[in-house]
Design a protein around this nucleic acid. Sequence first.
DNA 1: CGGATCACGCAC
DNA 2: AGCGTACGTGATCCTT
Length: 802
Amino acid sequence: MITIWSTAQPKLVSETFGRMLKGFRPNVPKHQFHLYKEDAEPPVVPTGEVCLVAGAKPLAVLQKAGLAPKGRTITSLREKPLKSPNNGSFLMTFDPHSIANDPPNYDILLCDLRLADRLQRTGSTEVLAGNCKWVPNFSELIEGIASDYAQTGKPVDVTVDTETMGFYPWYPDRDIVSISFTHKRGEAHVLYLGDLPGAEKVVEPQNGSVWDQVNWLLTSDRVKIRAANGKYDMIWIAEKWGIECTNFSMDTMLVGSLLDENRSNSLNLHAKLFTPYGGYDDAFNQTQDKGAMEKIPPEKLLPYAGGDTIAAQDVADTLKADLLHDDDLTRFYVTILHPAARAFEKVERRGLVIDKEKFEVLGDDLRKTIKQTQDVALGLLPQKMRIKYKDRIEDQIAQGKNPLLPSILQEFFFTPHGLNLKPYEVTPKLKNGQPVPSMKKSHLRQFEHVPTAKAMVAALTELDAASKTLSTFVEGFLKHLRPDMRLHPTYFLAHGDFDGYDDDAGTVTGRLSAKDPAIQTVPKKTKWAKRLRECFPSPPKKKLLSCDFSQGELKVVACVANEKTMLKAYEDGLDLHALTGAQMAQVDIKEFLSWKDHPHDKELAAAFEKHRGNAKPCNFGLLYGMSAEGFQKYAWASYNIMLSIEEATEMRNAFFTLYPGLLGYHDDMRKLVKTFKMVRTPLGRIRHLPTIDSWDRQARSSAERQAINSPIQGCLTDMMIWAIALLEDAYPGGELEIVAMIHDALIAYIPEGEEQLWAQRVTDVMSSLPFDKVGWKPQLKFTADAEAGPDLAHMSKIKLVA
DNA sequence: CGGATCACGCAC
DNA sequence: AGCGTACGTGATCCTT
């Protein structure tokens, strides 16, 4: 019996712990709730039973009774059982009330409940270990699967996991160290492929019977493969053994992230939340270098290599049951997300060709520019400051670093040692109780009426742009160049804690992110953008093709908000960014549009592009809840237009008067999120926003803005990944090679001379997504634009037939 | 000195 | 008083 002792009202207790206990099915532990009463004695906990002490008040009772050490926090007492007078155990956890203000606490409480269950059943908090064994082949496993299949006639769930030499398969001398399969609960069959002695010796899987067995397991329609972050394993298996898995049906990372994108999803966390194996790999993670699996003695590797599939098999059962509670989310996973993840295996394997020599020449030019602009900027420092910081400056230069440190520049701009300017903007954090002036260029540019400031800002702008380009995009990107002379960025289709990265990766909205390198941030509009993009050529006899949804985000808004003016504008072919651009340039829209293709005046055409481009973030700002004050700030920082608050309010009002449906959409989202604590994209993906109930007003309104933004942002990305999945499916022949995705755009290699054909084919798929499969009827057609060229700097528009 | 945090700049 | 979502880098803070 588990006794849950808390101050919370019965309703909250049963909502919180009841939901958690359901997750234990079919083995829901016997439990009872014990209400906290002031001055009452602690509950009686007999031998072998456990009491979960939830919150500071019951803990204080234990402390008063001498049953818990005094002066300690719940955090420090968690996970360590204390003896009860009757030989039972007390386990500490947080108060269920705390979840409302700090939603991640839910997971901590659930972990503690799992721990209480384990303690109650096994008498110890020790991790339950599964049965892992080295096998010379998978004959026994396959027999077991065959026997299950014979009994049920249904495909059998099997979980797979690999351990590998490092994280990247693009190196010929790196290989798979082990592969594990779990078919029966709690049992892993692990094949060791490393060089170290100690494991059962196997026939090399490259050819022969073991390869046939792995191939069967990953392609048979009698098997349904599951994995945690399976994209990783599938890429290794395909690269090293040439096996293309055809029966991969469920990924616990993807499903776990769909069910709760806010938590730090990982197999480790899922195991703690949903299985008795929670923490099975904690000791391994602390003691072993996971970057070199091949050096780990087999006896140490076995419980980890096998533990992953044992845990994942159990995790998958729970997550699948959870997912199936939501029809829309299930459909979204099966129809869109899972196929997209499979498509990204191919995208990542292809990689992007780069021109290394061009990168190096660019690097040299950048270093020259950095040197020159550094000298200019240093020359603008007053002599006193140059003397004061002489050592520091020389030291930085000697190390090849920037001598114009933020601390020096702050002193230059904002103290009497320098220009003594009064900052308009400060950083969010105080330093020594003092506000710190912002050193953003957009802030510093506001002082251009002071000649020295103007000169310094100009030099710093040049310098920092060159430094950023060099460090992040030249040197930084080249660090990720693989032996095939390609970049292979990793895409994240889930949010969580992935092996090999320090922090969480992926997004909460459903957007993808990419790492190693961050291909989605390659500059497009900066001074060096063209030079940089020239370093991304197409391979021989191929051309680059880039297709994006035209004004996709605004069109999604128009549809989900059912905003009549926007819908009408799009039906009439009007450009909403231009509309706002005209407003910002304070020009009549008709005249503004006439600038666009002005036959004689190229400057007007350039001005059109500039204002339209600057209008974009402004549109998006207002769209997603920017205030009049924010709008005012934006106009000043980006346009040097000083608007009074009345004028800013007026322009903001004009925007919402033009599009009255938007305010309705904002209101709808605010109401929805308040009621359901979540919002949903039209394709079924959910954004959970539990902080809508926070006591903190700022947190609440932040959740409101996220509720407004996420369905839009998520929807457009989901359309793009769906298109990529459909394209990989429709054109498997290798002529179309999708190599990157940048939110609402895809980049592919196509055969030279067939630009028109492939532009048409790709945009046709993008603009005719089968929305009926997920029950959405958008009012607009999502058209796509296409560009092609020899490299990313020279892309020209392709005319398409609608 | 190494890790954590902050500020910034880049993309959409 | 607040548009949103990311990743990578360098400076600085913080702690041992």
